[in-house]
């Protein structure tokens, strides 16, 4: 795949929305940093991480995918070019929690880096699933869903009997925490791989190649 195709695909990404989302997340992390020794820093950071995932949900938006799919630059190729953009919200989230981290402090902010990765993966996974259902630019809805999923998971800890999803203090179940986030990442990768297949593939038959 040539670099000119890559450049074109990257240029077509919804950059204003992506950058706006990153700036909003960074602003939240900024407030969290200003209040880093108070009780509000943690929930604000979780909101920021959720916003990173919501921003990533816009990465796959392609309003004119119907005609783009009919070109030799297939859907998977375009997605492959677009995916690195998701590193941007991830970088914002990861850098922010690493900056909040105080090596001498009790709180291990660096433990939230996997949350940033999973949040971004979640945004991509939800967007991809919605694209498969026929929404060509699902960013708006996908971002709300991804944000809700991530924020509810880390703020309310529904599985706290088995695993701590946002282990700011030393995690009670370090292995379970690592496994849980690895599972989220793998699931989202699987959803992405399954949903971003070429829509022109035969519906009930295997590819002949």
């Amino acid at each position: 795949m040539s670099a000119s195709v890559g450049r074109a695909v990257l240029r077509a990404a919804p950059w204003p929305t992506l950058l706006g989302g990153c700036v909003a997340a960074a602003a939240l992390f900024g407030i969290a940093a200003a209040l880093r020794h108070g009780a509000l820093a943690f929930p604000l950071s979780l909101l920021g991480l959720g916003l990173c995932g919501a921003t990533a949900a816009y990465v796959l938006d392609e309003a004119s995918a119907e005609v783009e799919d009919a070109t030799p630059t297939g859907r998977r190729a375009r997605v492959a070019w677009r995916l690195p953009i998701a590193l941007l919200p991830f970088a914002v989230g990861a850098a922010a929690v690493l900056m909040l981290d105080d090596p001498g402090g009790a709180a291990g902010w660096d433990r939230l880096v996997p949350v940033a990765a999973a949040s971004v993966a979640c945004g991509l996974g939800v967007a991809s699933a919605l694209r498969r259902s026929g929404r060509l630019a699902p960013g708006d809805l996908a971002s709300a869903i991804a944000f809700g999923l991530v924020f509810l998971a880390v703020a309310f800890e529904p599985l706290d009997a088995w695993v701590s999803l946002a282990p700011l203090e030393s995690p009670s179940y370090p292995l379970a925490t690592a496994l849980a986030w690895a599972l989220v990442l793998l699931s989202c990768a699987a959803v992405l791989a399954a949903c971003e297949r070429d829509p022109g593939r035969p519906a009930n038959r295997k590819e002949t190649v």
Binding site: G21, L28, L51, A54
Partner: peptide
């Protein structure tokens, strides 16, 4: 009319409520 506006406003509202609700006591 920009994409993501509802979510951004919801987050801003939430942060506003959180900061104004709990920050003054500190």
């Amino acid at each position: 009319r920009f994409p993501g506006a509802p979510l951004l406003v919801a987050v801003a509202l939430f942060v506003w409520g959180m900061l104004a609700g709990y920050r003054p006591s500190q």
